[in-house]
Write a protein that binds this DNA or RNA. Structure first.
Lengths: 203, 203
DNA sequence: CCGACCATGTAATATGTTACATGATTGT
DNA sequence: ACAATCATGTAACATATTACATGGTCGG
């Protein structure tokens, strides 16, 4: 269901093409939803057929067709209805920790590699999200600027607070994962070392 | 792909029935993977046909059929191969924060409700995970005990460390979400109050 | 003219959710 | 007898991933 609202939300800042959405959602970099073009284009047609968005065909150059979609009033209502609902939390799925609890037959080295990959992943993610947040707050994101332009002074502050909160929250999450993996590596080393010592003592 | 390994992992502590798996994975309480029985039973048959698990039919009472599955050597290899691989991170999807960034047309009250629901959700989750971790570390989880029984003294410490890390990490994540939402509510209140004041001053 | 990128589509497959379905056992 | 729980299944639908496919534009 969320793809629908990711699209409506994106278009609520201003009109855009399917390809624009693909840029945001494919590769999924730093955003809060991900989808590939093969999901996006059909979904756009579905939303249009339901009257939530409206598309107009334009031509780039000689004959390259391009559809520009914008939110209809009905679509804006639908989006507002969704955002004012309480969040629905999906079942917890955590493949990395699932992997971890069953890795106890692999010896400390494989586990160390796992934790190091975890660290690296979330360091990278933290950096990307931080950059994105900074760009938004310093006015360097044109879609967010469009969004702000349509609002009153008071509304603008709220919009920016929410962006700050959302990206900041993601960063905090990354920080928590980094702190966790760092501590985990230290504990793993202590355990491996204690065992090495115990084995040496016994000889 | 992970359902497969969730099942293999579960069975790596000892044999069990499809229903046992349903208990762990449906409702998905506190574990790191979730699935409903309509996914689990077909997957068990698939794993059996691939020789990764072996099932024997037993009868409970007069005629209630029940299949008990256990891991084959091939299944254990498959699990080990998976757990020693580097984790693969799936695209980030965060419906709650997606909802939040587009909630700026809803006024502070709806946002406050959203954040309060977030708080409540992660407080509940934290409590459940904490309980589960305590039970495991104090020897009150019989599946984990079975797993420990099959290991050497050194192996036991590693198994327990990994469980502690995994559940502890989940708790830390919940803590981060709680801290985030608490701070977010405070900042929202400050903003709403500042605006109320500004409006009152203007009158 | 060629490579990078723009722009959109379909099909096959995998995964996940909800609903429909059946029957047995156990404890009260 | 009745309810709760054990035990397993199928079908329909929704969502997500991967692969296959096509053609245009723009800058060097």
């Amino acid at each position: 269901m969320s793809l629908r609202y990711a699209i409506l939300g994106y278009l609520s800042s201003g009109s855009g093409s399917g390809y624009d959405l693909v840029q945001q959602l494919d590769g999924g970099l730093g955003w809060f939803w991900a989808a590939s073009h093969s999901q996006i284009y059909p979904e756009l047609r579905r939303l249009e057929s339901q009257g939530l968005i409206a598309g107009t065909s334009t031509t780039v150059g000689e004959r390259l067709e391009k559809r520009i979609y914008s939110l209809t009033d009905q679509g804006a209502d639908e989006l507002r209805a969704w955002t004012s609902k309480a969040p629905e939390y999906r079942p917890n799925r955590d493949p990395e920790r699932l992997q971890l609890i069953f890795a106890d037959d692999n010896g400390p080295d494989a586990i160390r590699r796992h934790l190091e990959a975890h660290l690296e992943h979330f360091r990278g993610r933290r950096a990307q999200v931080a950059e994105m947040r900074d760009r938004i707050l310093s006015g360097g994101n044109s879609r967010v600027q469009q969004r702000l332009d349509a609002k009153s002074e008071a509304g603008r502050e709220l919009t920016l607070l929410l962006r700050d909160l959302a990206y900041g929250g993601d960063m905090q999450r990354a920080d928590a994962e980094i702190a966790w993996a760092t501590d985990a590596l230290a504990r793993l080393d202590r355990l491996a070392h204690a065992e090495g010592t115990a084995r040496a003592d016994a000889e």
